[in-house]
């Protein structure tokens, strides 16, 4: 009896430690909020100024990727709006050096996943469903796990046609 108790205790401790460790590593080392080369604030753009998502991420409606806007699109407004701010000066440097801005990808899917933004937007999903409350974020934080179970939970709930077939998303 004593040994069984000990074993159970050991198992419980192991499970609890694993759980805590998993949560901690996910929260603090997963880096869901990476630093960007320019402190671009979605809160100012999408929140306060009500710029629609598709104005900058224009490929989301018609392609697999939503696309990061080119520097021209940024400079188009910012040659007039707040041109003296230090962050805009960084942007200007990129523009003058003819370099793309090395944004850090926050929502990074592995290569073996086929995820079309187009299909999901045509199905009537809001961007916020997966990307969270972007209009109130200064620096973008990844809010969804991007795990397969997370994808499938939605596909199952919405009864997506062929949504559970492997070759719908993989290869």
């Amino acid at each position: 009896m004593d040994t069984i108790k000990k074993l159970v205790l050991c198992a419980v401790i192991a499970v609890v430690t694993f759980g805590i460790g998993y949560k901690v590593s996910d929260a603090y080392f997963g880096n869901r909020t990476p630093a960007q080369p320019i402190e671009f604030s979605h809160k100012i753009h999408a929140g306060d100024n009500q710029i629609p998502c598709m104005y900058c991420h224009s490929y989301a409606e018609r392609s697999r990727v939503s696309g990061v806007p080119n520097v021209k699109r940024c400079i188009g407004c910012h040659s007039v709006i707040k041109p003296d701010s230090p962050e805009i000066q960084k942007l200007k440097n990129y523009w003058e050096n003819k370099e793309p801005i090395p944004w850090v990808k926050v929502y990074n899917l592995p290569d073996h996943v086929y995820f079309p933004h187009k299909r999901h937007i045509k199905a009537g999903l809001e961007c916020q469903m997966c990307h969270g409350d972007v209009q109130s974020m200064d620096r973008i934080t990844r809010v969804s796990s991007l795990k397969m179970g997370w994808c499938l939970s939605c596909h199952t709930r919405k009864k997506v046609k062929n949504g559970r077939d492997c070759w719908t998303c993989h290869i």
């Binding site: 073996h112 077939d165 492997c166």
Partner: peptide
């Protein structure tokens, strides 16, 4: 490897 709704013999590399 399984058969899908399109009559294709699917090979899932991840599995």
């Amino acid at each position: 490897t399984y058969h899908n709704q399109d009559g294709l013999n699917v090979q899932v590399y991840n599995r």
